[in-house]
């Protein structure tokens, strides 16, 4: 993080409100102490995030006294793009990937921190810590700069940018253990609670507001659930769990038999779908 601040002109931190973002932000607060992190936070809001996420986001920025930029793809909103009407692929493309490119271009940011970890997904396992992006924000996995020792080649041409992943070498368990050790606040959705859910293609979807159309005969059930990852609520599956504390979550993780992104509907659209999205500029 210090390397980015020392070498890049105008960095920004992608803040997605999840546990990884919370950890990344916490590390940033430490890295620059006693100064404040010398960059703003950017949240790309699809307008379909859980309400608790938005409340947590605003509270976090206020508590830490950091500048928060919230960007919504207004054009996509005008066109009526949503996970319900357009399907997860189009929604993700327009409201996340395109929106992110818009926000980075508008802010003229030449470096963006992201909380992605290499253990999350196969194509992410090959991502560099300093990952070069073309003027069009595209990732070329066949032509990445070799990354030796801890020497990062940060040089870019005008208009190009870097995505930087400080948590590359952390695992999901590392993240939770760190959250516990440092008592880092996270969105309450990670903890078990009785919530209204419906079952869709094998996933438990929480009815977070009245925009989620119910199928004929479908009524939300009240179940004890929590989330392992957070995204747009109609695309994020909950798990049945009684884990109410960090200790419970870590115990549950150690015994887990499914991977964390299993609840994410956007990864399974097609084989190698994460790599495709990443090439187009998704985080």
């Amino acid at each position: 993080m210090r390397e980015v601040v020392a070498e890049m002109r105008n960095p920004v931190m992608l803040y997605s409100i999840g546990k990884d973002s919370s950890v990344m932000l916490h590390v940033a607060m430490k890295a620059f102490h006693p100064a404040k992190p010398p960059f703003p936070l950017l949240h790309v809001d699809t307008t379909w995030k859980f309400r608790e996420m938005i409340a947590f986001r605003d509270e976090t920025a206020r508590r830490l006294g950091l500048k928060l930029i919230v960007h919504v793809n207004k054009d996509g909103l005008k066109r009526g793009v949503s996970p319900i009407a357009s399907g997860s692929q189009v929604h993700t493309q327009v409201m996340k990937t395109e929106a992110l490119r818009q926000a980075l271009d508008m802010g003229r940011f030449d470096a963006a921190f992201g909380g992605a970890r290499r253990d999350e997904e196969k194509s992410r396992a090959k991502e560099r810590i300093f990952s070069h992006r073309s003027v069009a924000h595209a990732w070329d996995p066949r032509n990445q700069r070799p990354e030796l020792w801890r020497l990062f080649n940060t040089r870019i041409r005008e208009g190009e940018s870097m995505r930087v992943f400080p948590l590359s070498n952390w695992t999901e368990l590392d993240v939770w253990e760190y959250v516990q050790a440092e008592r880092i606040p996270v969105v309450p959705l990670y903890f078990s609670k009785v919530r209204p859910v419906v079952e869709r293609s094998g996933a438990l979807i929480m009815v977070d507001d009245d925009r989620l159309p119910l199928n004929p005969g479908e009524t939300p059930r009240m179940l004890r659930v929590r989330f392992r990852t957070l995204g747009c609520y109609p695309l994020t599956g909950a798990i049945e769990s009684g884990a109410e504390t960090l200790d419970d979550i870590i115990a549950e993780m150690r015994a887990a038999t499914t991977s964390e992104r299993q609840g994410r509907l956007i990864d399974t659209d097609e084989s190698a779908s994460m790599e495709k999205k990443k090439r187009e500029g998704y985080f």
Partner: peptide, 10 residues
């Protein structure tokens, strides 16, 4: 395998 892939296990 065309690149370096990192794997984590404990």
């Amino acid at each position: 395998t065309i690149d370096v892939a990192y794997r984590y296990f404990a």
